[in-house]
Write a protein that binds this DNA or RNA. Structure first.
Length: 393
DNA sequence: TCTGGGGTCCTGATGCTT
DNA sequence: TCTGAAGCATCAGGACCC
């Protein structure tokens, strides 16, 4: 079929975390549910559809969400459970296509090009995929968008939520996008939307026909990317195997801190977490980045390139302390984070790293600590038994 | 209203090399 | 030997996404 040179599916689970809580606990069904930490600095991770008429949604401060929706039930997130259901959902997707690109726990792209003989035309394929997900999960719904590019498929899946199925034939994709607001363009967040509005550009159609030189002069090279999307041009393929470029851990503190000793303590926790993830996922890092968020929300960061790749928490911590020493600022800080970047598949570690890794912790203990942090949140082990990764010598 | 955590990508400034 | 330009890499910060 000429109109469908490629068939790309975007599948996005509806209010995933909240829907799982309602699935597991019948008392929550039909009631407004907010999933997120119930701390004074927490934000909503997911709001169930029953809560959304009260104008609450993801990333909203929990305190505000509770004011707007006082009858909502707040549920602490259970990421281990969400990962478990995610594996089931991804397994369903894998039954439909060998090319599945997971974007997060609750959404994925599937390349279904040339499989109409197996699953039928796009509408039939969409219905079968939705039914299979509901069947495998005990009733969770997924919104599906199908088109000829990743971008249009993604916009289509969000078009009719929840439990939607939107099919946009590639030959009318540009026409379908045209009347939509610029906010649907991937990469146009609140800041850029404001700048585009200042230029009188409110719809996708206006971006599509704007003079590219003028647009680049006005908003920079991002303009070319936006304009390609506005014309439904997106050649990216579905990539089943993607390697992470960085692994990080950060924590917003209950109260701001300024003392270096306390900052170092939090860095130790972050280094333990990042080191553990590096080892678990079999990567080494050649760079360490320290991140501090001041009370006024200004973010400071310092990074250091390593001469030797590492996956040792001890090494990450040492380097992060060096980064901390470079910062000429007294704080206080509300967030402390540590990231490892310039990742490579592990295998060529130095003898020193292997020694560090071997002596730091056994794999069994790692798994147990993982489970504890999953159950009780980041930093739970440190809160209970003190800084991790400094076992008896 | 008062703003999480884990990521990716882009941009401008700066410093190094040729 | 010195200097400036160009190209490139790195760094810090910002915006964005889920």
């Amino acid at each position: 079929m000429d109109a469908w040179p490629r068939t790309i599916v975007h599948a996005d689970m509806d209010a995933f975390y909240a829907a799982i809580e309602q699935l597991d606990n019948p008392e929550l069904r039909g009631r407004p549910v907010l999933v997120g930490p119930n701390s004074h600095r927490g934000v909503v991770l997911t709001a169930s559809y029953e809560a959304r008429p009260a104008r609450v949604g993801s990333a909203m401060p929990m305190a505000l969400a509770r004011r707007r929706c006082p009858n909502a039930i707040v549920v602490e997130p259970r990421f281990a459970r969400y990962r478990e259901v995610s594996r089931i959902v991804m397994g369903v997707f894998a039954n439909f296509s060998p090319d599945v690109e997971a974007l997060s726990l609750d959404e994925a792209f599937l390349d279904m090009s040339g499989s109409s003989h197996l699953f039928g035309e796009p509408a039939a394929l969409g219905r079968r995929l939705k039914a299979a997900v509901a069947d495998a999960t005990g009733g969770l719904t997924v919104s599906v968008g199908i088109s000829g590019t990743k971008y249009v498929a993604k916009v289509a899946s969000a078009h009719r939520k929840p439990d939607g199925l939107t099919i946009v034939s590639p030959d009318r994709a540009r026409e379908w996008l045209a009347p939509q607001p610029v906010a649907v363009l991937w990469g146009a967040g609140p800041k850029l939307q404001g700048r585009l509005a200042d230029l009188g550009l409110m719809t996708v159609a206006q971006i599509a026909v704007a003079d590219p030189q003028w647009l680049v002069a006005a908003i920079g090279k991002t303009a070319l990317h936006l304009q390609a999307l506005s014309r439904a041009e997106d050649a990216r393929s579905v990539e089943a195997l993607r390697h992470p470029k960085s692994i990080s851990s950060e924590l917003t503190l209950e109260t701001d801190v300024a003392a270096h000793e306390e900052i170092r303590r939090h860095l130790r926790r972050a280094a333990d977490t990042v080191g553990r993830r590096l080892r678990k996922q079999a990567y080494t890092a050649r760079g360490v980045r320290l991140k501090l968020k001041r009370s006024d929300f200004r973010i400071l960061s310092r990074q250091t390139a390593l001469s030797e790749p590492t996956q040792s928490a001890e090494r990450l911590w040492q380097v992060a302390q060096g980064c901390l020493a470079q910062i000429d600022d007294r704080g206080p800080y509300r967030l402390i984070g540590l990231g490892a970047f310039d990742l490579a598949a592990a295998g060529g570690e130095s003898q020193l790293d292997l020694l560090c890794t071997a002596t730091e912790r056994s794999a069994k203990l790692e798994a147990a600590l993982d489970a504890i942090e999953d159950r009780f949140g980041p930093g739970a082990v440190q809160r209970a038994v003190g800084p991790r990764g400094r076992g008896p010598r």
